[in-house]
């Protein structure tokens, strides 16, 4: 009975693996099709779509735009998120629960609503649609993830180390910079890679807060609305490779962090 269950469940698992992988594999493969028309079967193959995309300024510009937005917004999220985490972790004060609730709020708001709220607020603050607005909205949206990761790491910091540093004459700021911060570095790295991914993949906020210049997901969306073509497959593959690279890098960091603690 248990044996049968086990075999059945492992079939379910591998079917699920197929479900999550096959569409992506098909998408990458379709970029090699030597035709303007998307669809199976593929009779002749070509590299032209990929070489074309790598030479296409529109795609490369969008790619660079996405990367710079991701990096800038991550810097903001990490600084603010770490600061909030240091305030909230292990401290009891009046209103802490309320601040924590507000901190995680942006992560819980459904995508379209958060995009609309940011759009209205950007108008209120006088931020024009464009790079600044996208960076700002991504930064705010990603702060909760940084806070949660950094708080988890901070809760495992041995208090005795801080006390020892203080006893030896370090003031709180130096104790933070020399003891707490180095201890947090793996968490901060992990969180920032996660933020990079979230920002690079984000569509809905970039779409509503963007100006005329498209980020990579917005560019793919715009092209898709005017019809499918293997060119889009090639562009999407560029985005996919980028996320995979960042993701594998992230995995190394989280593993190192787990080993440390």
């Amino acid at each position: 009975m248990t044996r049968h269950n086990r075999i059945l469940l492992s079939c379910v698992y591998w079917a699920f693996v197929a479900y999550v992988f096959v569409p992506l594999i098909l998408m990458v493969t379709m970029g090699f099709k030597d035709s303007n028309f998307i669809g199976f079967p593929i009779r002749s193959w070509t590299l032209d779509w990929y070489t074309g995309v790598l030479a296409d300024t529109e795609t490369l510009t969008a790619f660079g735009y996405s990367v710079s937005i991701a990096v800038l917004s991550t810097v903001f999220s990490v600084i603010v998120g770490t600061w909030i985490a240091v305030l909230l972790e292990g401290r009891k004060f009046w209103g802490r629960a309320a601040i924590f609730g507000m901190t995680v709020l942006p992560a819980l708001i459904p995508g379209i609503i958060s995009a609309i709220a940011f759009r209205i607020y950007a108008r209120y603050l006088g931020i024009e649609p464009g790079m600044g607005a996208i960076v700002w909205s991504h930064a705010v949206h990603n702060v909760p993830f940084v806070v949660l990761v950094v708080m988890a790491r901070l809760s495992t910091l041995p208090k005795s180390q801080i006390e020892a540093a203080r006893d030896l004459g370090a003031d709180p700021l130096i104790a933070f910079l020399r003891i707490t911060f180095p201890y947090l570095v793996p968490a901060i790295m992990g969180a920032s890679i996660f933020c990079l991914l979230l920002s690079f993949d984000d569509f809905v906020r970039s779409f509503f807060l963007g100006g005329y210049e498209p980020t990579l997901p917005v560019l793919i969306f715009a092209k898709l609305k005017s019809g499918m073509s293997p060119e889009i497959n090639a562009i999407a593959t560029v985005a996919l490779v980028m996320t995979a690279v960042i993701g594998v890098w992230a995995e190394r960091f989280t593993r190192r962090m787990n080993k440390d603690s």
């Binding site: 998408m27 379709m30 993949d201 569509f203 793919i220 969306f221 898709l224 992230a250």
Partner: peptide
């Protein structure tokens, strides 16, 4: 299982379009 979930919303939506067209 985590690897495909790093890929963005638009790219994965497009992959489904190719699967089901």
């Amino acid at each position: 299982l985590l690897i495909p979930f790093w890929v963005g919303e638009i790219v994965r939506t497009y992959a489904i379009m190719i699967l089901l067209g």
